[in-house]
């Protein structure tokens, strides 16, 4: 007769090993995410290592309410923010230099403030289908990497980490109005880059 406790244990062990495999497969994505914020390879590797260890340790507390990847990303986000706050206290957080001019944005609009023909937004189709598409996420990642470092960092703190602009300003020591300008540029760049990659990929 089957021992219910043993088979329950087997099931848990199996789940655990599936998750360990999952961790190693998402590792590269975690590292590039951490690198974008910390701008230091060794530090990014450390943050990911710590997050992975925490994920393994706390495996039992994963409630399964959200996806496993999201849960691991959540752990990494905390690690990254901890490191950034620590760097700030130490005065070692690299300040944002406002190196990007408005030139890129100006290129998307005519002098009279209307869209240039080459950057005029087109339809991406059904939003739910877009978000579900693997192709969209590949294009998204490529476009994030193509952003200037400062722009990527602010955008990611805001949209991927969910910080308020007030918190971002405190952390990076920039004015809130400056933050808004950077986010506007980031969105314009991203939408143009994604539209190019997305629509071209659709027809390819």
């Amino acid at each position: 007769m089957e021992d219910p406790a043993a088979s329950g244990g087997d099931r848990l062990a199996k789940q655990r090993s599936i998750r360990l495999e999952r961790l190693s497969s998402i590792r590269p994505k975690l590292v590039s995410f951490a690198r974008m914020h910390l701008r230091d390879n060794a530090m990014a590797e450390d943050a990911v290592q710590e997050a992975l260890m925490a994920a393994i340790e706390k495996d039992a507390t994963f409630a399964g309410r959200s996806g496993y990847d999201t849960w691991v990303f959540g752990i990494l986000k905390y690690k990254i923010l901890d490191i950034m706050r620590y760097q700030k206290r130490q005065g070692r957080l690299q300040p944002l230099d406002d190196e990007e001019s408005d030139e890129v944005i100006d290129r998307q609009f005519r002098k009279n403030g209307r869209w240039e023909a080459h950057s005029r937004p087109a339809s991406w189709g059904d939003p739910d289908a877009v978000i579900e598409s693997q192709h969209f996420w590949r294009v998204f990642d490529a476009c994030m990497i193509a952003l200037p470092e400062n722009t990527a960092r602010v955008f990611s703190l805001r949209e991927l980490m969910g910080l308020s602009t007030e918190e971002i300003c405190g952390l990076l020591e920039i004015r809130e109005s400056n933050c808004w300008v950077i986010l506007h540029r980031a969105r314009l760049r991203l939408r143009q880059c994604i539209e190019k990659g997305w629509l071209e990929g659709e027809t390819a």
């Binding site: 877009v130 969910g162 969105r187």
Partner: peptide
């Protein structure tokens, strides 16, 4: 629509 989609999409990043 695209800015809104970016915003929604980012909340699910990593999934």
């Amino acid at each position: 629509r695209q800015f809104r989609l970016l915003h929604e999409a980012c909340r699910g990043y990593g999934i």
